[in-house]
C-alpha cells in the first residue's frame, strides 16, 4: 500500500465533502450550473440511494433539519458516522476506522442501502415518502426545491 495514495484518499474525500458544504453555503442546488443533477437519475429516471443528498446538506446547513430529512433520510442518518470517521482518519491516517465492524453488520448496511434505493422508487405510500422530498407522492410542488 502506497502511503501517499492512502493519505490522498483520506484528505481528498474530506476536502471534497468540505468543499461541497462550503459551496452549499452560497449556491442553491437547482439554481446553479456548479451543482449538476445526478447523472444516474438523468439516464434512468430512477432515484439511487444517494439522490437528494446534496439538497439534504443544503437544507441542513441552512437550518431546516426536517426538510433535510425529507430529501434523503439515509444520508442524514449516516452523516454523523461519516464525519466522525473522517475526523478520526485525518487525526491519524492509520486508525482503523470501522474496519473491525463484523462483516454481517456491513452486509446489513449494504442491504439497507439497496432496499432504500429500491423502496424510494415505488410510486405508492408509504414508500413514495422516501423519494427526495417525497416527490412521487405529489408533494414536490410544496417544497422550495424540486427534483430536476
Amino acid at each position: 500500500m502506497r502511503l501517499e495514495t492512502h493519505r490522498c484518499v483520506i484528505y481528498g474525500s474530506a476536502l471534497a465533502l468540505a468543499g461541497l458544504m462550503a459551496a452549499l453555503c452560497f449556491l442553491k442546488p437547482g439554481a446553479t450550473p456548479w451543482l449538476p443533477p445526478c447523472p444516474f437519475y438523468r439516464l434512468t429516471g430512477l432515484y439511487c440511494p444517494g439522490c437528494g443528498s446534496t439538497r439534504m446538506l443544503y437544507f441542513l446547513l441552512h437550518g431546516h433539519p426536517w426538510l433535510a430529512f425529507r430529501q434523503n433520510p439515509l444520508a442524514l442518518i449516516v452523516l454523523p458516522a461519516v464525519l466522525y470517521g473522517l475526523t478520526r482518519q485525518i487525526v491519524n491516517p492509520n486508525s482503523p476506522v470501522y474496519s473491525r465492524i463484523p462483516a454481517r453488520w456491513g452486509t446489513a448496511f449494504l442491504l439497507v442501502a439497496i432496499s432504500f434505493g429500491v423502496a424510494r422508487n415505488l410510486p405508492f405510500a408509504p414508500f413514495c415518502s422516501l423519494a427526495p422530498g417525497g416527490d412521487r407522492c405529489g408533494q414536490s410542488r410544496a417544497l422550495p426545491l424540486t427534483h430536476r
Binding site: M1, V9, C38, P49, V82, Y98, S99, R100, G106
Partner: peptide, 30 residues
C-alpha cells in the same frame, strides 16, 4: 515508498465508500 500495515490497520475505506454511494450518486459506491 511502501508500507505494510499490521493486520488490524488495513484500511477498508468504509467512510469513503459511503460518501461515494451517497454523494457521488453512483452505483459504483455500492
Amino acid at each position: 515508498g511502501y508500507m505494510q500495515p499490521p493486520m488490524a490497520q488495513i484500511p477498508n475505506y468504509m467512510v469513503q465508500s459511503v460518501l461515494a454511494t451517497l454523494f457521488c450518486c453512483l452505483p459504483l459506491g455500492i
